[in-house]
Design a protein around this nucleic acid. Structure first.
Lengths: 226, 226
DNA sequence: TTTTACAAGTGTTTCAAAAACACTTAATGC
DNA sequence: GCATTAAGTGTTTTTGAAACACTTGTAAAA
């Protein structure tokens, strides 16, 4: 940090934008807000906000997420920072993106309606303002990489879930089908899921056993890879 | 981008910091600058600078690198953004880090001396200001991931290089030794190096054949992984 | 000129993980 | 009790990773 020339006259606004992922109807979806005002009225955008002067960047992202969804303590991580001078044609804003994994039935529906937010499957995104499409795409790519080595998908599932559900979730993230037997074999070797005595009967006549993710057992798992 | 409350009074300075990697004496090194002034006098830091009002974030990183090294058109990529409110105890600065791969014998030595910059092997870093150590570490981790799937290491080598050199470079990045035969076998299957009729005699009596990286052949390589 | 020293160069075997593949089972609704 | 439907289950093949030791070419020393 040697060059102080620019600093005193710097006029750049710093923002955060959230890529909020949810899993519903066996599809990976993103929560977008509808712009009810000009400019760019009636287009869609990510939920964003400006960073407070004394606010950690991470905290700003969490605040923005909470304002929209009512959710706190959500799994979130920084993706990357978009800083082209003209990315927002109206003002100079540099934006850091964060991706969040939320449980679709836990968020506050009224808040969401207030913001005119809507869920979109990741392969059916609407027209987005500025570089928000690129933001979503880079968040998806990052998510695809992360889920291979970290057990973060459980943030998108309820406490109890079935293996078919879990597989559908991975398939939704990777956008490709997986082999049922290989998938289950892999999970079995890693041994961090607890099988319950309960079945979920809503998806099939036979019913599928419910499982729970066990953090402790996971920590003993040396190499997690899907 | 819904919440405009903070924007008008926002006073956050936006900076970039560069993690500059070089390869010399078979070690991966980082270029650091010595602070000759208070506060934090006599400690080391990354080369950084503030972002211009109408300057792309990427361009700011390139400018900072050029100011220090004289180099342009260098391989550079964004790593991540550090945004804790108190990361710099003197003023509120949010900094985006970029990592650069440069050829150690091409940079401008006079400029480097002017800035009192010095190369440090990545396992012998000096005391660094603020969160710069964390910045370097995250850049190293990212580099370790990237070099596995992209042929970017050639940015750290001269046009012509030997296989022992290339292997030492990977070893320096991963901080672990590799098997010579397996390493060469892998390169052979991917087939994007051109063997020259020339030898480098400086490292051994027998001499090692020189190779050149072939971008075109690489593009036909489906799966690059080291 | 012969010998020594030294890194460069070279294949095969073993092991582990990924991929491919098809039938049986449990429960419901008719 | 029969038909329907998704859940559940192992084995084989293929592929890639890891382990491993000797020969070669040259310069310098004897």
């Amino acid at each position: 940090m040697m060059d102080r020339t620019y600093k005193d006259i710097q006029q750049i606004t710093l923002a955060v934008d959230c890529i909020i992922f949810g899993f519903n109807d066996n599809r990976l979806e993103v929560l977008l807000v509808h712009r009810g005002f000009e400019p760019e009225k009636d287009r869609w955008s990510l939920m964003g906000g400006f960073v407070g002067n004394h606010e950690d960047l991470d905290d700003a992202a969490n605040r923005v997420l909470k304002d929209l969804s009512g959710l706190e303590d959500v799994y979130m991580e920084q993706v990357r920072t978009f800083g082209k001078a003209k990315r927002d044609p109206y003002e100079r804003v540099v934006s850091t993106t964060y991706s969040a994994l939320i449980l679709k039935d836990k968020y506050n529906k009224e808040l969401i309606e207030e913001f005119r937010a809507k869920w979109f499957p990741i392969d059916e995104l609407p027209d987005l303002i500025f570089d928000h499409k690129e933001m979503v795409e880079s968040a998806i790519r990052r998510l695809q990489r992360r889920v291979r080595t970290f057990p973060i998908v459980f943030n998108l599932l309820p406490d109890k879930f079935t293996l078919p559900q879990l597989q559908k979730l991975y398939e939704g993230i990777f956008q490709e089908e997986m082999d049922k037997r290989n998938f289950r074999k892999k999970l079995a070797t890693m041994d961090f899921l607890i099988k319950l005595d309960e079945k979920d009967m809503s998806e099939s006549k036979k019913g599928a056993f419910l499982y729970r993710f066990n953090e402790k057992k996971y920590n003993k798992t040396k190499n997690f890879t899907i």
